[in-house]
C-alpha cells in the first residue's frame, strides 16, 4: 500500500480510537456519578461490621475522600486508574486489579468456547439455509433461530443443567475442574448455554447476508457463463463475509452480558459472577473497574474489526476517505 493510500486509513483509525476513548470517558463518568448519587451511604458500607459513630464515619469519609466534591473525587479516581490502580474492594480489601485477574480466566474460557461453537455452527447453518431457501432444513433452522434468540441464557442454562447434570448425570453440576480435559468437561454446559443464543443470531445474520449476495446480478451472470455452483458459492461467500465478520465483533458485547447470567447459573467463579456479587454488595470500585474493562474490550474490538476490514476490502476504503 502506498503512503498516499494509507493516510485516510491511519486518519480513520485515529478518529475511531479517539471516539473509543471519548466513549470510555463518558462511561466512566456515568458509572461514577451513578455511584455518587446512588441511595445509601458508601461510608457505612466501608465500615462494615465496625462500630458506626459520627467520628468513625467522618474518618472513613476522609480516608476515601468521600467528603470531597464530585469533580475532585472523579479526578482522583481517574488519575489512579490511568496508572493502573483501581482501588481496593470494599468487601475483601484486596486490590481490584488482582481480584479481576484471578477471575478473568474462567470467563475468557467460557466466552472463547461459546464464540467458537456459535460461529462455526451458526455460519455453517446459515449458509445451508441461504443456499436451500424454503426447504424443510431452512424452515426448521429459521424457526429454531427465533427460539434461540428469544430464550434467556439462564432459562436455557437451568434446563440443560437439569437434563444433563441432574437427570442424565453426564456432566458435573458445578465447579471448574482440574486440568484441560476435566476443565472442558466442566465448562461444556455453560459454554453451550451461551453459544445457543449467539448461534441463533449468527444463523440469522449469515442467512440474510448470503441470501442477499445469491440474489445479486453477478450470480446470475456467473451461472449463465457456466461457472459451477461451488465456484459461484466461493465468490458469494467472500462478498457475504464483510457484514458477517463486522457483526461478529458486536457479538462480544452480548457475550459479556450473557456470561454474567451463565456464571451465576452454573456457580462458576468468573468475572461475571464477580460483577453480580459486586453489584449486590455495592462493592463500587469493583463495579466501576469491571464495567470499564468490558467497555474497553468491546469498543477496541469494534475498532479492530472495522480497521481489519478496511485493510482486506479495498471497496470500503474509498467510502471512508469520502466521508
Amino acid at each position: 500500500m502506498s503512503e498516499g493510500r494509507a493516510r485516510p486509513l491511519v486518519a480513520y483509525t485515529l478518529r475511531r480510537l479517539l471516539g473509543a476513548v471519548a466513549l470510555l470517558f463518558v462511561l466512566s463518568v456515568v458509572v461514577f456519578s451513578l455511584i455518587y448519587w446512588a441511595p445509601g451511604d458508601i461510608a457505612r458500607n466501608l465500615l462494615g461490621n465496625r462500630q458506626v459513630t459520627p467520628e468513625s464515619l467522618a474518618a472513613v469519609r476522609r480516608q476515601y475522600h468521600l467528603d470531597q466534591p464530585f469533580v475532585v473525587q472523579y479526578a482522583g479516581w481517574l488519575r489512579a486508574a490511568l496508572h493502573g490502580d483501581f482501588g481496593r474492594s470494599i468487601r475483601t480489601g484486596e486490590p481490584v486489579g488482582g481480584l479481576i485477574r484471578d477471575r478473568i480466566g474462567v470467563t475468557a474460557a467460557i466466552c472463547g468456547l461459546a464464540f467458537v461453537l456459535s460461529v462455526v455452527g451458526g455460519v455453517a447453518a446459515g449458509i445451508a439455509c441461504a443456499v436451500r431457501r424454503g426447504s424443510w432444513l431452512d424452515r426448521i433452522l429459521v424457526s429454531g433461530s427465533v427460539l434461540g434468540v428469544s430464550a434467556p441464557a439462564f432459562a436455557v442454562g437451568l434446563l440443560l443443567l437439569y437434563v444433563f447434570a441432574v437427570w442424565l448425570g453426564w456432566f458435573p453440576f458445578y465447579g471448574t475442574g482440574d486440568g484441560l480435559l476435566d476443565g472442558l468437561w466442566h465448562l461444556a454446559l455453560p459454554a453451550l448455554t451461551l453459544a445457543i443464543g449467539l448461534a441463533a443470531f449468527v444463523v440469522k445474520l449469515t442467512r440474510a447476508a448470503v441470501a442477499r449476495e445469491l440474489d445479486a446480478d453477478y450470480v446470475v451472470f456467473a451461472r449463465s457463463r457456466g461457472l459451477g455452483r461451488g465456484a459461484v458459492l466461493r465468490i458469494v461467500l467472500r462478498n457475504a463475509a464483510v457484514p458477517i465478520v463486522t457483526s461478529l465483533g458486536l457479538l462480544l458485547a452480548y457475550l459479556f452480558g450473557g456470561t454474567v447470567l451463565v456464571e451465576v447459573t452454573f456457580a462458576l467463579p468468573g468475572a461475571g459472577a464477580l460483577m453480580q456479587d459486586a453489584v449486590e454488595f455495592k462493592d463500587f470500585p469493583v463495579v466501576q473497574a469491571l464495567t470499564l474493562a468490558v467497555g474497553l474490550i468491546v469498543t477496541l474490538s469494534a475498532v479492530v474489526v472495522d480497521v481489519v476490514y478496511l485493510l482486506v476490502d479495498p471497496r470500503l476504503r474509498g467510502r471512508v476517505s469520502h466521508r
Binding site: 466513549l23 462511561l27 458509572v31 451513578l34 458485547a253 452480548y254 459479556f256 452480558g257 450473557g258 454474567v260 447470567l261 460483577m275 453480580q276 453489584v279 463495579v287 464495567t291 468490558v294 467497555g295 468491546v298 469498543t299 469494534a302
Partner: peptide, 12 residues
C-alpha cells in the same frame, strides 16, 4: 448502542 446493554442494565 456501543455499550454492552445487558451489563449496563445490571450495573445501573
Amino acid at each position: 448502542l456501543a455499550l454492552p446493554a445487558t451489563l449496563l442494565a445490571i450495573v445501573v
